[in-house]
Design a binder for these strands. Structure first.
Lengths: 223, 223
DNA sequence: GTCTATAAGGGGATAGAC
DNA sequence: GTCTATCCCCTTATAGAC
């Protein structure tokens, strides 16, 4: 049992000691930024250490290997945007509300290039079965896909969506649009607006699968 | 001036000599496969050399640097699927025909995981401004985007598509769907059918933006 | 908890023989 | 056109001092 918040004292600081948890957190933040910019394979732990203000071995004290550092990074990432897809009360948005939640997530993402870069690069690398983030990628997609499929089923039952709406296909392609837009936006941030394009996509889905209960945009209208 | 097709003779073979063009081509093929599986950063030129049946220096005789090898790989890739988006007579498909051409390309791609892996990994890496394939990625997206925008404009003028159809947004999101599906398919080839999902997407676009001149799928129908 | 030192190997690229 | 030998730097990881 240790007393939770240990702050640095003048004495400990002069001896080069720091709060371990603090150093660890700095390292994770540094790793997110560097993995985001150059990928996991394209980043060395020495670079991460330098940005975190640690020596390479100092860093490896907190994470036994580079893969362990990656695991910590992924955990942090999921924590940061998993909260976004569940409301404060733990309930999940259903029907069109789920698509609106994704649009909101896209809007937030467009202010966080770090996290987007991390995601785009990592999912591409992690396609390889032997990549340390491979299982994470599988879990991630399984989770989002199931979440969205459930939301569409609920939307159908509530009468927000046509009975013929295909949940799997809708989920799959919507996730694909998000990922593809992130990729294009990273490449040319000034030319591509993730928010506009994704909102357009959702509007189109509403026009195709929405029922009269909710706004159906007719061809030729703006927005 | 050299006499174009130089074949290996028993004598040259015994001296360890081979047709240069042949070795070069083997190297490019090997590089495509390895870059596809592990990315550019994740592949060493020694690995490429081994697969091509050359020593590392033998490989570097044909390509002065690893980046030069990458350039050759990208050139080869573009040659292989650029032909697909222009008809035999050099004309380009317009209106819905362009989307059908993309669907056909998707079908072909699903038999060529090598090229898909190459594309997905490389475009993700190449998002970084200092990546050797960055300019290629910019050109690639600019080209496909312009191609599709033109096709949609033509479709509107022909009356195949509603006058309110937004060319840029439609192009952007369709490309995003393709890229995103490729990514998901690479991760789980057995669970994801690029062809089915992309065709579904195109069918939805027809339902939303198509005019009576062409089939409009009504909600609830299959396919 | 953090450091220096070092091991042990891989990376891209060059020189020069054949 | 291809090879062997070599250079030099960067990589991950460990040992042990403080």
């Amino acid at each position: 049992m240790s007393f939770p918040p240990r702050y640095r004292t003048a004495r400990s600081r002069s001896r080069g000691e720091a709060n371990g948890a603090e150093s660890r957190a700095r390292a994770v933040r540094a790793a997110i930024e560097l993995f985001a910019a150059s990928g996991f394979q394209g980043t060395s732990i020495a670079q991460v250490a330098e940005r975190a203000g640690l020596s390479q071995s100092g860093l490896l004290h907190h994470f036994p290997s580079k893969a362990a550092l990656l695991a910590a990074v992924l955990e942090e990432r999921d924590a940061r945007d998993g909260e976004f897809l569940t409301s404060a009360d733990g309930g999940r948005p259903l029907g069109w509300a789920a698509f609106d939640a994704l649009a909101a997530l896209t809007a937030r993402n467009s202010t966080r290039p770090h996290l987007v870069g991390l995601f785009v690069r990592l999912t591409a690398e992690a396609t390889a079965p032997d990549h340390p983030a491979h299982d994470w990628a599988l879990d991630h997609y399984a989770g989002v896909h199931a979440w969205l499929v459930d939301a569409v089923r609920a939307g159908r039952e509530r009468g927000e969506m046509h009975p013929g709406t295909p949940p799997e296909t809708l989920a799959r392609s919507t996730i694909a649009v998000m990922d593809g837009l992130q990729q294009q936006w990273l490449l040319e941030p000034e030319r591509v607006s993730m928010v506009t394009e994704f909102s357009g996509h959702v509007a189109m889905l509403r026009a195709r699968w929405g029922t009269a209960e909710r706004a159906v945009v007719s061809p030729g209208s703006s927005t």
